[in-house]
């Protein structure tokens, strides 16, 4: 009954996966440049190194499966098909941004693509995902709510509360613990009592397991199975992905805590390099094809950046627009409403 993708995707999808991973890598590198140039403010959390986890996950889902994420979520939006122009413009705080310059890097959302947003409080979006799963079951749709959060969030009490309710009510949900092994600068062994996080979900009667988060096909297969459980058997699932982010927690983190040797060891398993070898080895792409794809992606990122830089700022007059979906009079604009 389900249209879950096959374990090994067809060649055109393999090429799409690789292109999306490449797009995320190039987009993030450009975002770092824009940050260093002072055109992006606030926090900028880069997902370089986590492309397999992101694209493997999104490629296993249906387009209308609600997806929620953390503040490290540019890649999720890109993988869902959000226009890179609208994302880069949001990062630059422009009127053309996907959230009109109100959210910034940490709070992208693309409702048209069922991407329900990036959230800044660690673990705070997991209850929302529970509600999206609840709504799917309430309405009798086949949607599966998928929420990505880090191993740091798994230590937040509210996440355990959500495991319990999802297990208790058999909600159509997939919990995805992206274990990148650091909560900001604190390694897991100094933050968690046990090495693995997926058994925590198992304690609430949720089927759960761990896979290599640097291998896009392994991630995709795991998420396909997790989504199948949730969609077809109406049982929640939890997948822990072991991965690594190459950059610091955010651009303001000089990343002096982690050993160079450790970083090199993980970068030797780079998800893009690994997957490129697979594509070449199986004859799905050749060197020229890859070069052409990389040039096209570079062009997309150049275009998105130029678009963002040239986009207008948000008019100050619109500062208080949108505080409420249903303002109570024509002048209803934030706290200004409270004036006579």
């Amino acid at each position: 009954m389900s249209a879950s993708p096959p374990p090994v995707p067809p060649p055109d999808e393999m090429r799409d996966i690789f292109r999306t991973m490449t797009l995320i890598r190039r987009f993030e590198e450009r975002a770092a440049e824009e940050y260093m140039a002072g055109r992006i403010g606030g926090f900028l959390h880069l997902a370089i190194g986590e492309e397999a986890a992101i694209v493997g996950t999104v490629s296993a889902l249906r387009a209308d499966d609600p997806l929620t994420s953390t503040y490290r979520e540019h890649g999720q939006a890109l993988a869902r098909g959000t226009d890179p122009r609208a994302i880069m413009a949001e990062l630059l705080g422009r009127a053309t941004g996907i959230c009109g310059g109100r959210g910034g890097s940490m709070h992208l959302m693309d409702l048209d693509r069922s991407f329900y947003g990036g959230y800044g409080i660690v673990g705070g979006a997991v209850p929302l995902a529970l509600g999206l799963g609840w709504a799917a079951r309430y309405r009798g749709t086949e949607q599966v709510s998928v929420t990505m959060f880090g191993e740091g969030a798994a230590n937040q009490g509210v996440v355990s509360e959500c495991f319990n309710m999802a297990g208790l009510w058999d909600l159509p949900m997939v919990f995805l613990i992206l274990n990148n092994q650091y909560g900001m600068g604190t390694p897991v062994e100094r933050a968690a009592a046990a090495e693995d996080f997926f058994p925590r979900a198992a304690a609430y009667d949720i089927e759960s397991w761990k896979v290599d988060g640097m291998d896009v096909l392994a991630v995709r297969a795991a998420l396909s199975e997790a989504a199948r459980l949730a969609r077809d058997e109406r049982r929640p699932a939890c997948v822990e992905l072991l991965a690594y982010r190459y950059r610091g927690h955010s651009m303001s983190d000089p990343d002096t805590v982690r050993a160079a040797e450790e970083k090199e060891r993980w970068q030797a398993r780079d998800p893009l390099v690994t997957f490129e070898r697979v594509l070449l080895g199986e004859g799905i792409m050749d060197g020229d094809g890859i070069a052409a794809m990389q040039a096209e992606v570079a062009q997309v990122v150049d275009d998105a950046t130029a678009f963002a830089q040239e986009s207008p700022e948000v008019p100050i007059a619109e500062l208080a627009d949108g505080v409420y979906a249903q303002p109570w009079n024509d002048d209803a604009r934030g706290s200004a409403l409270m004036r006579p």
């Binding site: 329900y116 209850p127 929302l128 529970l130 509600g131 709504a135 309430y138 309405r139 509210v158 309710m165």
Partner: peptide, 12 residues
């Protein structure tokens, strides 16, 4: 968690 569940359900 159930307050957050309500928020998510409302978003849907």
């Amino acid at each position: 968690a159930f307050t957050g569940l309500g928020i998510g359900a409302a978003m849907a």
